[in-house]
């Protein structure tokens, strides 16, 4: 199979599976609360219906509002296509760590600008909160993966994952434990989960992601929600493959790719179930305490880099 075909298949698989992963994160806490809960495919039903509805636009909105859903979806799809999710081969050389973090940040900034663009109080409030969180999360994402890139000598995510898959002994080091903790906290913050943001609440005073998308409707809302789901799958997939890289295809043999896809879906669904079950035991942090948590995760990332530089 050609690398291009693999990239397209990878993006399609992630885009199709992402709403189901969101369905898992809703079903698990519902079961624990004694509910019957919605079906796992319910987010797909919601998306299909929203895609058929006409979008509306607030009176004061400009091109930023119109462009943000497309920018978010496009950046997420590029990361989904080139990242080391099913296959860790550096053949298309696009999965550089700095490029991936930059693309994710581009989507975040586009949505924050759209929130400001609506001219509503909640849009601006959500945008300023999202930027505070993004400014603290992106350095942690970079540092945590830098710690892993030391042992490979490259910031190419595919090469880091491939090295982990072929030499499992090098995955369990103090540096990767610290980096895993830092990346896990950064993932929670970047995807708007408890304790940083609560995806289940509609309380205006606490919401971050939802405050920015309040004015979207129909097709635009579907794109924003789909892209947000895709980012959750991307970050969970990176977390899984960087610290448990088993099952990732290291060649373009179709059989290994199929195994890689199945293992990847299993890993992401498992992580999503773990994440949402953990949310049952935790409360959301006060907004002013979120920087403390994120500074802590940055410090863990810094320690991981130091540990890998000294011990390697």
């Amino acid at each position: 199979m050609t690398p291009w075909l693999v990239a397209v298949a990878q993006a399609a698989l992630l885009a199709l599976a992402a709403p189901l992963v969101v369905g898992v994160t809703r079903a698990v806490p519902a079961r624990l609360a004694g509910r019957a809960g919605g079906r796992i495919a319910q987010p797909w039903r919601d998306l299909c219906k929203q895609l058929r509805k006409q979008p509306t636009s607030p009176a004061d909105a400009s091109m930023f509002f119109v462009a943000a859903p497309a920018v978010m979806m496009a950046t997420s799809l590029i990361v989904a296509a080139t990242g080391p999710f099913i296959a860790a081969t550096s053949l298309f050389g696009g999965a550089d760590l700095i490029v991936v973090v930059g693309l994710l940040l581009l989507g975040t900034v586009a949505l924050a600008l759209a929130g400001l663009d609506t001219g509503t109080a909640f849009g601006g409030m959500g945008a300023s909160r999202a930027m505070v969180i993004a400014a603290l999360v992106e350095p942690t994402l970079l540092l945590a993966v830098f710690a892993l890139s030391f042992r490979v000598g490259s910031t190419d995510l595919s090469r880091i994952v491939a090295a982990g898959a072929t030499e499992p002994a090098r995955v369990f080091t103090p540096a990767s434990l610290l980096a895993a903790a830092a990346l896990a906290i950064a993932t929670l913050a970047e995807t708007g989960r408890i304790p940083v943001d609560n995806p289940a609440t509609h309380l205006e005073l606490t919401m971050v992601h939802e405050a920015m998308v309040l004015e979207y409707s129909g097709r635009d809302l579907a794109l924003v929600e789909w892209a947000a789901a895709l980012r959750l799958s991307i970050l969970l997939g990176l977390l899984a493959n960087l610290f448990a890289p088993w099952g990732v295809a290291t060649s373009l043999d179709p059989m290994w790719l199929a195994v890689g896809a199945a293992v990847f879906i299993g890993k992401v669904c498992g992580l999503a179930a773990l994440l949402s079950a953990g949310e049952v035991w935790t409360a959301k942090l006060r907004l002013f305490r979120v920087p403390e948590l994120l500074a802590g995760s940055f410090f863990l990332g810094l320690l991981a880099v130091l540990a890998s530089a000294i011990l390697a």
Partner: peptide, 21 residues
């Protein structure tokens, strides 16, 4: 609430009339 649990039938409360059917 968990007892009547209308969410199992695909109904969800949303924060904005723009999101609502």
């Amino acid at each position: 609430s968990p007892v009547y649990d209308i969410e199992r039938y695909g109904v969800r409360l949303v924060a904005s009339p723009r999101h609502a059917d």
